[in-house]
């Protein structure tokens, strides 16, 4: 199961002991019974019928039947490494970070230093809110076992798989590096200022203003063949910086993404081209917004449209999925 359902239907699944991942508006999540599930707030969804804003129903993903055991936990900043170190030897970890929180930023920055980060699959997303609620309410995550909501901790569901089945995490990214300027930042962080551009020292805000950068096109870095985006949040003249939705890494070469002829078509085609039906998936709210996916056309791979995606590391403008593979 990977679809929008009513709160009462979700509660029936919870009461039946199903192991679930649930995304929905905070009001709806608060109506859910305790059970074997984790959740996060978001009212934007990609469904087989198109993108929708729904504050009444919840998006439920039932974990695969192969999962033999689960445990859930809220984790604070001081214990971030437990996402990896407490993972089962054979299984995967599904995480949800409360957006715009300290732990959201800390996870993105600290993940580089988490020991054995790639030893066990980590997949998930960043909880958000309706854009009209910005500044009014905070994104939250919830541990369904206790019913506790949090906006300062992440929630994780560690799932165990039997021998012979492995979880694999993948991404669908429509962007590639363009053939423009080479940008290398002096510091790791969610903002950019001092950098080198084509080898010469520069101020990134000045560069962004001078070249009139299209902020819908992310910066893209080539991570051993994987194109990883960092999306623009804003040009901040007051602070003299450019803000991003994920950290840029010191010393890594970025180039702005090559323009897309048609964002929506590129996105849908890329997803359709995968020919898959993942056990879990989520897509970025920026793809939802910039791609004009709301109420438009069938979406091949459904899931919440999130404030960031997690495929081990924090990702932007990317569809993230997890599949089970028999080996």
């Amino acid at each position: 199961m990977n679809k929008l359902v009513s709160v009462s239907d979700a509660n029936a699944l919870i009461d039946a002991g199903r192991r679930l991942h649930i995304a929905g508006d905070e009001v709806a999540l608060r109506l859910l019974h305790r059970g074997s599930w984790i959740g996060g707030t978001i009212p934007y969804f990609l469904t087989p019928d198109g993108g929708v804003v729904d504050r009444e129903n919840v998006f439920v993903t039932e974990l695969p039947v192969e999962v033999s055991a689960v445990s859930t936990e809220l984790i604070d900043v001081a214990h971030l490494t437990e996402v990896s170190t407490e993972a089962p030897p054979h299984g995967f970890s599904l995480v949800i970070l409360p957006g715009m929180s300290a732990i959201h930023a800390e996870y993105a920055l600290a993940v580089e230093h988490i020991p054995s980060l790639f030893a066990s699959p980590i997949v998930g997303w960043v909880a958000g809110i309706h854009l009209s609620d910005l500044g009014k309410v905070s994104p939250k995550v919830i541990d369904g076992a206790s019913g506790e909501l949090a906006d300062d901790r992440l929630v994780v569901m560690h799932a165990t798989l039997p021998e012979g089945v492995v979880a694999t995490v993948g991404i669908v990214n429509v962007f590639t590096q363009g053939d423009g300027d080479s940008i290398v930042f002096d510091q790791t962080g969610f903002s950019g200022k001092a950098c080198t551009i084509n080898g010469k020292a520069a101020d990134f805000l000045d560069y962004a203003r001078r070249t009139d950068l299209d902020l819908k096109l992310p910066l893209v870095a080539n991570h051993a063949g994987e194109m990883i985006n960092v999306s623009f949040q804003a040009l901040d003249d007051a602070e003299g910086i450019v803000k991003f939705y994920a950290p840029v890494l010191k010393g890594v070469e970025y180039r702005q993404a090559a323009p897309l002829a048609d964002y929506r078509t590129a996105l849908i085609s890329a997803i359709e081209g995968m020919h898959f039906s993942p056990a879990f998936s989520c897509n970025c709210i920026l793809n939802y917004l910039y791609g004009g996916l709301e109420g438009q056309q069938p979406i091949p791979v459904p899931g919440p449209a999130t404030f960031g995606e997690v495929g081990y590391v924090l990702l932007n403008q990317t569809l993230v999925y997890m599949s089970l593979v028999k080996i």
């Binding site: 580089e112 980060l117 699959p121 051993a224 994987e226 010393g251 495929g311």
Partner: peptide, 22 residues
């Protein structure tokens, strides 16, 4: 040596190792 593995995590693990080694 460069190769894009079909497994996303393999590429990310190599990339992390490259940065750590550097």
């Amino acid at each position: 040596a460069t190769h894009k593995f079909s497994l996303f995590a393999a590429n990310m693990a190599i990339d992390q190792a490259k940065r750590q080694y550097k």
